[in-house]
Design a protein around this nucleic acid. Structure first.
Length: 270
DNA sequence: CACGATACCTGTAAGC
DNA sequence: TGCTTACAGGTATCGT
């Protein structure tokens, strides 16, 4: 999926087109993604004005003037297409604005989701209720991370993917941040030194910030809503680079943790 | 409760 | 050219 930087660039792209606009027409091409669409989705969106966009972790938020918020998740393969030139069989939900723009939520694998909640109840929306801090927020510090990891024996890689520890990281940026901080991905989370966590937190913030500035990471089907590519993939130091040289002179390796690929360098990650 | 395995779904690339 | 297999940005759920 789209991890945090890709959702952030998606939300910014959508905002340019729908913030302040009224949704004139809603088309639902299938009844569900991972979950069924909310039964009142079409009724609530049709005629509503979009008053603002937002993001929580990897979820995009579309606030409308009916005290409601549409929450979308892009799963592994989701993306919004703005004014697509042609229809695609995976365009599942289409919004048309009164200004004539078309927005298509496209998701081949359908691991994504769309929910609708009263805006006042956002914090109690299921997935948000137990979520950890935003990695780019002030509440995410070496101290809070250290407290969250205390006593945990799972590998640090897997703990960073746990949205209850920190919310918004995915496979790519966890690999990249651990590499930047020089930490072995399979080290028990509770045994990562304070000095390492002091490097890890800024490494996470930097890699996310740099990726957002580059427009995210384009892989396969991810693109910003406008169709522009995200260029951060060119900056990956380890992700997807098995067998290639690491900048330290070592070699990037791949291992499997929790059924997912981890890319790392044993020479500079200890 | 923590943790690992599995399921969900389609597309693409690699291997034979 | 098929056909088969492995793998892909995530998360929910179900075992142990």
């Amino acid at each position: 999926m789209p991890e945090l930087p890709e959702v952030e660039t998606t939300v910014r792209g959508l905002a340019r087109v729908i913030e302040g606009a009224r949704i004139a027409r809603v088309t639902v091409n299938r009844p569900d993604l991972r979950r069924p669409f909310p039964p009142d989705l079409v009724q609530m969106l049709t005629g509503a004005q979009v008053i603002g966009l937002g993001r929580r972790a990897k979820y995009g938020l579309v606030h409308i003037d009916r005290n409601a918020t549409m929450i979308f998740h892009l799963g592994m393969s989701g993306r919004w297409r703005i004014d697509p030139l042609a229809a695609d069989k995976h365009d599942h939900l289409i919004l048309e604005t009164d200004a004539g723009s078309r927005l298509a939520l496209n998701d081949a694998r359908r691991f994504g989701s769309v929910d609708l909640v009263p805006s006042a109840e956002l914090d109690s929306f299921g997935p948000f209720a137990e979520m950890g801090p935003e990695p780019l927020g002030d509440a995410f510090t070496p101290g809070t991370l250290r407290a969250a990891l205390a006593g945990r024996i799972s590998p640090i890689k897997q703990m960073l993917l746990d949205q209850r520890v920190v919310a918004g990281l995915g496979n790519i940026y966890v690999c990249e941040a651990l590499h930047r901080a020089g930490i072995r991905p399979d080290k028990a989370a509770g045994r990562v030194s304070k000095a390492s966590l002091d490097r890890l937190v800024p490494a996470i913030k930097q890699v996310l910030t740099e990726s957002i500035a580059a427009g995210g990471s384009t892989i396969r089907d991810y693109a910003q809503p406008t169709g522009e590519l995200g260029y951060f993939a060119a900056s990956w130091a380890v992700y997807g680079r098995e067998g290639e040289p690491c900048s330290c002179g070592g070699t990037v390796e791949r291992m499997v943790q929790g059924g997912r690929s981890t890319f790392w360098c044993r020479k500079c990650q200890k």
